[in-house]
Amino acid sequence: MNQITSAIQIIPLEYYIVLSVTLFSIGVMGVLFRRNIIAILMCLELMFNSVNLLLTAFSAYHSDPAGQVFVFFIMIVAAAEVAVGLSIVVMMKRNVESVDINLLNRLKW
């Protein structure tokens, strides 16, 4: 236990910032890269989680539990968002027989 509790005093906060920025950029890249709407939703989850990790890191370094409660709320919102998003995917597959986002371009013009 003592070894684990000392971990955040060894690792600088900047490392967590760099890690979160890396994951968030990978998520942004995935949203731009893929055409499958399910893969895009997964990249969205990746971005959510990088933000969660950064909030937890700041909360741990400040010794303030409010940040972790906030991460808990973000998880709640993410769960609701995934449920609605996947039902939209099911509806899209039923109506246009595909999960390709390039078929849903009516709102573009």
Partner: peptide
């Protein structure tokens, strides 16, 4: 695993 490193066991 990162959360456990950051002492956020509940999370």
């Amino acid at each position: 695993g990162h959360y456990i490193l950051l002492n956020a066991q509940f999370l």
